[in-house]
Simulated assay, not measured.
Amino acid sequence: MLAEHIPHVETTLHYRNPFELLIAVILSAQCTDKQVNKTTAGLFAKYKTPYDFAALSHEKLASEIKGCGLYRNKSLHIIKTCRILAERYGGRVPGNFNDLQALPGVGRKTANVVLNIAFGQPTFPVDTHIYRVARRLGLSNGNTPRRVEKDLTDLIPAAERGHWHHRLIHFGRSCCTARNPRCAECVVAQYCLKRKKQLMDKEN
């Protein structure tokens, strides 16, 4: 039912290549995609390669990304990551998980996002929206993002993981929100464990 309601969704981050996607995802931590896109529109017009970013001072880049949360730490991480990309990978973004996760500012979720979107690999990144929705709908009872990721990769065929990653994020943002979810409009409310618990509590 959810697939019929949300047939096809893509990332809302704006990027033109794997490198820009990597920077955008690093910036997206505790920041909306809308704000990231606003920031990167000017950023990518000025700095186009890891070499460009690697030459920046921490203060200069921090001032460029100030609209994003945690901008001081992100500035340090981006510059360090770009220096590694320039020195170790010839300015290219590596296409494997271990190399990506070893980069400063790149955690498991960020590495999986880049592999999924930029390289077409069947990873399943789990952010706060997917973690919440998967548990509410009974797709996983995992109590960590990594456990939820395992449950979803076991459940969803490799060819469909990219679609379902974006679909669940969209659903979590538009309907199944953390606060005040729009349960009356939800097309899969009958499967929601949170909703069932609320109804049972009312009856008791």
Rank of each mutant, 00 (worst) to 15 (best):
P7H: 07
V36L: 08
R195D: 06
L168D: 09
C183T: 04
R72Y: 12
D33G: 06
G138W: 04
H163C: 04
Y191Q: 15
H14V: 12
N116A: 13
S57R: 05
I156F: 07
G162Y: 10
C176R: 01
A45P: 03
T49D: 07
H165L: 11
L27Q: 06
T49K: 12
K197G: 01
R195W: 06
K109I: 09
M1W: 02
P145K: 00
Y191M: 14
T12I: 07
C31L: 08
L85H: 01
G142E: 02
K197A: 12
A62M: 01
K194Q: 12
R92C: 09
S28P: 05
V9F: 09
T123H: 14
I26V: 10
R135F: 08
L13D: 01
F97R: 11
D127P: 14
R135M: 07
P50G: 13
L56F: 02
S174I: 07
K202G: 00
A3I: 05
T12S: 12
S28L: 04
R147D: 13
R182Y: 11
R83H: 04
L103T: 01
G107Y: 03
K196P: 00
T177R: 15
T81A: 13
S63L: 10
V25L: 06
R173M: 10
P181G: 11
Y89I: 00
R195G: 02
C82V: 15
G90N: 05
K194I: 00
D201G: 00
V93P: 00
D151T: 13
C175I: 15
T40K: 06
A3R: 14
R173A: 05
A55N: 08
N116P: 11
G172K: 05
T12F: 06
A86F: 00
A102Y: 14
P122V: 05
P104Y: 00
K194D: 05
Y89A: 00
P94I: 02
I26Q: 02
S140R: 07
N141F: 13
P18H: 11
A86S: 15
A184S: 02
A134M: 05
R147K: 15
D201L: 12
I6K: 05
C68M: 03
G95V: 03
N204R: 13
V126Q: 09
V133T: 11
I6Y: 13
K48P: 08
C176I: 12
P157M: 02
V36R: 07
H163G: 01
V25H: 03
R88K: 14
P145I: 00
C186N: 07
T123F: 13
I117P: 05
H5Y: 13
K109W: 07
L61A: 10
K194H: 14
E185I: 02
W164L: 04
S140G: 09
M1A: 06
P94E: 09
R92D: 10
I156W: 04
D33H: 09
N98D: 15
L76H: 05
V113W: 04
P94Y: 15
E20D: 05
L27H: 07
P104L: 10
T39K: 11
G69Y: 03
C192Q: 11
K197L: 08
G91T: 10
A86N: 10
